[in-house]
Amino acid sequence: MNKMRFLSAALVLCFLAAGFVVPAKAQDFSHIEAILERLDRQSRFENTDFSSVLTMVVEDQEKGIEKMVVRQFRRDDGERFLLLIQEPITEKGQGYLLEGDNLWFYDPSSRQFAHTSLKETFQGSDARNADFGSNSYSSSYEVEGYLEGTLGNFEVYIIDLKAVDDTVPFPFVKLWVTKDSDLVLKTEEYSLTYRLMRTGLYPKYTKVGNVVIPVQMIFVDELVEGNKTQISVSEISVNDIPDHVFTKAYIERVNR
């Protein structure tokens, strides 16, 4: 009897799971795709530059708790960003310079720039290099399905996405997006085998001109219990940043 119940339950789950995915071709996802486009648009600084200070608290079961302070300069027109590590002292001066498809990591001890990948984790934290630029949900993913639900006090769309190119760190993503304000509250990122790798939580945002950016982010490593990174954003500025900042020369100048 118990075996029958288990089989029935498994069949129901299979139906649920299949039903969760199969409608991908049948349903009209245009309103969800429009949401993704709005998410991308409202994360991009089209006509202004952006700079801020990121304070990251990295909790690692092996290494303990480490604080990291990073100065960020961003120019979305031209896909540029510069991240300069200010703390801890052992990593001070290390920097990441992005320009289009090219990302360089600068090591001040060897005074060498090395090509690196946007997909890599940032300085051993649970954040990734790709987390520091604008979103590309509408161009890098296709909608596989969605549900409606609630998260905390907010009604949300829970959207399943599948990567259409290899520029993003994870092939499958699930987004919790508020229905009334198009804000991503939560993300779950999955491996090719659909294993949950990382959860992102975005409880606070601020509006800068037409752009809405998260000012508090929590990335939880779902593979190792207790590993997580909390990021808070401060010293926000949308003043123009001189061109020479987004150069190798600037990184060399600010370094010790």
Binding site: L151, G152, P203, V220
Partner: peptide, 29 residues
């Protein structure tokens, strides 16, 4: 592991916050 967070607490209030602009003598760069 993310379930350890209290989502009602995390997503219970206003999502949008105002950040105070700090006076800076020099531009950050």
């Amino acid at each position: 592991w993310a379930m350890d967070f209290d989502f009602d607490d995390l997503f219970g209030g206003d999502l949008l916050v105002e950040l105070e602009e700090e006076e800076q003598i020099r531009p950050p760069e």
